[in-house]
Simulated scan of single mutants.
Amino acid sequence: MRTINPVNHKKLIIDVLTMAGLTTEQAVTASTVMAYADQRGIDSHGMILLNTYVERIEKQIIKKKPSYTWELNKGVIALLDGDLGMGHYIGDIAMKKAIQLAKEHTIGLVFVKNTSHYGASGYYTELAAKEDMIGFSTTNTLPLMAPTGGAERVLGNNPISFSIPREAENPIILDIASSVVAAGKLMVAEQKKQEIPLDWALDIDGNPTTDPYAGFKGGGSLIPLGNHKGYGLSLIMDVLAGILTGAGYGKNVGHSDIGFVMMAINTSAVMDKNKYNTRLNDLTGMVKDSKKAKGTDNIYLPGEIEYLNQKTRLAQGIPVNKNLYTELEKLTAKLGLNMNDYFTVQQMDSSIV
């Protein structure tokens, strides 16, 4: 296992994406979102996807220089046509628009169509939390999940994220897939040549499998979170991100017609800030200080473990397993880059971490 320091991690992503033809602005935003994932231990949504993104740029599934347009901008609602732009870049624009609208109207709701995978949902909702707003985001994805009782991919493992701002503390961040695990976790397991738990995925015939290849790349399907509950959540998120945005939906979703929804709620416009903080602190205290089960030392709020991971990885570097390193080595060589330029110890500039 190798590690890469956070500065070089972002630089590697930026250099790879710009050498693949992406604009610098898109590459920088994508590197920030992917760093968010890798720093927090969400390895399924970080650098492991870099080769996939380059392939999509080469195939023009992701447009190198998109010209996004606002098709609707009315009151608290806006609709953005991403023009096949990099999902991270378009998603960042959309949430910042939702925040702007929420400052003006209490709530900002932005729909997005004609774009691609946007990475970790929690990045976008945290943008709202940093502005003392509650953030919400969902996106649909390619069909990866069978409905309860089915054996065919029909719905995406459409994620749901909320971020809740807290006074003088990191926000509460819920970021979950509507399947038991994200597809990226199967990619990580396959890369590490590890089996997966039997309740993560079905093979192509609808049988539970411990083989990550059979459950994802081999044509299998992810199992819904809580069975019918995850199936229902995925369906509703597809209505919001697919049907309502004008993007693809269900089995019609492709790599470049994914839809997003971004929402920001200005808490200060609804309730006095001190009152909000007092009530929230009371609630989180009830949770954190509640009676613990045997063997449990600490009760964590959603997102808390990821912040602890980030603290460790910023100090010790971001781990890169052997197979991922080999994949990145081939990718950088193809693009005329040298991996040795990134996997060396350099002084870290915290301003770009």
Rank of each mutant, 00 (worst) to 15 (best):
M1N: 07
T3F: 03
I4F: 00
N8A: 03
K11S: 13
T24R: 11
E25K: 08
E25R: 07
D38S: 00
G46E: 08
K63R: 10
W70P: 00
E71A: 08
L72M: 05
G75L: 06
G82V: 13
L84Q: 04
M86N: 10
G87T: 04
I90P: 02
I90M: 00
G91Q: 06
K97G: 10
L101R: 06
K103I: 01
H105Q: 13
F111N: 09
V112Q: 06
K113E: 10
N114Y: 10
T115D: 04
S121N: 13
S121F: 02
G122W: 07
A128L: 10
S137F: 12
T138A: 14
T139W: 12
T139N: 08
L144P: 08
G149T: 12
A151R: 14
I164W: 15
E167T: 00
A168E: 15
P171F: 00
I173A: 03
L174D: 15
I176G: 10
A183G: 11
V188S: 08
K192L: 14
A201R: 11
A201E: 11
I204L: 10
G206D: 09
T210W: 09
D211K: 12
L225C: 03
K229F: 01
V239E: 12
G248M: 10
V253C: 05
G254A: 04
D257R: 05
I258Y: 06
M262R: 14
M262H: 15
M263N: 01
T267Q: 13
S268K: 04
S268V: 00
V270A: 06
M271F: 11
D272W: 03
K273I: 15
N274I: 03
K275H: 14
R279K: 04
D282E: 05
T284A: 01
G285K: 11
M286I: 11
D289C: 05
G295R: 06
I299F: 01
G303A: 05
Q310K: 04
G317E: 00
T332N: 09
M339C: 14
M339S: 09
Q346A: 02
M348E: 15
